[in-house]
Write a protein that binds this DNA or RNA. Structure first.
Lengths: 102, 102
DNA sequence: TTGACAAATAGAAAATCGTGAATATAATAT
DNA sequence: ATATTATATTCACGATTTTCTATTTGTCAA
């Protein structure tokens, strides 16, 4: 998983906001259309649209347009990718080194 | 892994900033003292201190004081916890439901 | 084509975040 | 005790983010 630091930061922005976390929890129940999400969150439609854009940009959520409705769902592949990126960023491959004392 | 949405958001703030991602990458080489991190990043000491606080609050990084030096390292347990929280937030346990069309 | 509805975009206000200068605290050395 | 060094905290400022209102775009039904 090679990703620029910028892209990595963007990816995890998905889970850095309480409303987006709520949205993810709602989507765990399966694909939902935007209007349903809107009913469950106390935010306006443009605000939801903004958050969905961030979630889709992270690729953890995918959107599907059907007529005038947008359906959103969690992408298991996207979620796995995020976990891979997180792992690649947090496993320790060294012993550390001493610097200040000797 | 039960965590409030607020706590979850805080946890992933660790990986939402490019400098913090750089810091994690440096810590993958093992425990480092703050002064070494400071040398490798083009930020001031108070800024580093600020980022280290966010990283430690997320519990992905732990700090250890030794004399006047602070040593930081990645906590594998903290990283695993973050992955568990992320998983708990992104696995899909439902089929979704239809709302707008029938 | 017109009207109605869903979602996206533009623009602006408010809140949050990242940053550095100045200062404070803590630990060591003289 | 005083000086020095490493880190943390405080404060202020600019940048970014979240949010809203207003508007636009896209789609379907009369």
């Amino acid at each position: 998983m090679e990703l620029s630091n910028k892209k990595t930061a963007e990816m995890f922005k998905a889970v850095c906001d309480e409303n987006r976390i709520k949205i993810l929890k709602l989507l765990q129940g399966g694909e939902k259309c935007a209007c349903v999400l809107l009913d469950d969150l106390h935010i306006t439609q443009p605000t939801l649209s903004h958050h969905m854009k961030i979630l889709c940009d992270s690729e953890i959520v995918v959107g599907r347009k059907e007529g005038k409705w947008m359906y959103y769902s969690i992408s298991p592949e996207g979620a796995d990718r995020a976990i891979s990126v997180f792992r690649a960023l947090t496993d320790v491959h060294g012993q550390g080194d001493c610097c200040c004392k000797e």
